[in-house]
Write a protein that binds this DNA or RNA. Structure first.
Lengths: 112, 112
DNA sequence: TTGTATACATAAGTTTTTTATGCATTAGAA
DNA sequence: TTCTAATGCATAAAAAACTTATGTATACAA
């Protein structure tokens, strides 16, 4: 888990992907889901998450819906139409990045 | 190529990996090699590269050897013993990151 | 002689994240 | 029952890692 910095730049994509798969989620739920899916390898901090959600909303990629569960507040986020398109783009870029990086760090590479 | 920001955090690992494969390289050579290996997808800027090389050297992971080729200066970098160890660590972390991220953005994922 | 390539370097600004707080509710353990 | 951990939001200061913009200098081709 000393590789947290490799995740830099991928937070938006991760959030969008989760919302593409789960329709609607709230902030805390996202942190827990990511922790679960990555078996604890990636822990999204609140200081990173909330500003990121606000930015995606400001950019028109997410819609918010406030809900009251018991006496506690929740903000459910879901993709807008534009958000869905942007998610597809970002996932494609991510796939290309992963492929390129895999290629770059492949032990056999760099020897040719 | 709109995914440059995904490469944030991976520059050190890329440099170390290239030096593990090529014994010794100089800065400009590294930028060209990366451009070639990634088919132009990743362009390392000098503003990022040189400070990174200086830091790796300061951290004791690289050794420098200045060479004069014609009338022009070159600084060849190579891994120190410690640098070789650290490269192995960073490559392992990178593989784990790539695996985790692949898993996260896999279209089938998040539906369970 | 002017643009492109090679080769180094740094400084200012931006983006994105970590770290550190802060507030409030609720469940469960001591 | 009281204190701790978990739930749930938020922001501000600082650090990290870049990009962008320069600057210097050599070499070569159009």
């Amino acid at each position: 888990m000393g590789n947290q910095k490799l995740y830099k730049g991928s937070l938006q994509t991760i959030i969008l992907k989760l919302l593409a798969s789960n329709t609607k989620m709230y902030g805390y739920e996202i942190t827990q889901k990511v922790k679960e899916l990555t078996k604890g390898e990636l822990k999204i901090t609140e200081g990173a998450l909330y500003p990121a959600l606000h930015k995606l909303e400001a950019d028109g990629l997410l819609d918010v819906e406030v809900a009251k569960v018991g006496n506690r507040l929740r903000k459910y986020y879901k993709l807008t139409e534009n958000g869905t398109k942007e998610t597809a783009n970002k996932l494609e870029e991510m796939q290309e990045f992963l492929k390129t990086m895999q290629h770059l760090v492949n032990p056999k590479f760099g020897l040719e």
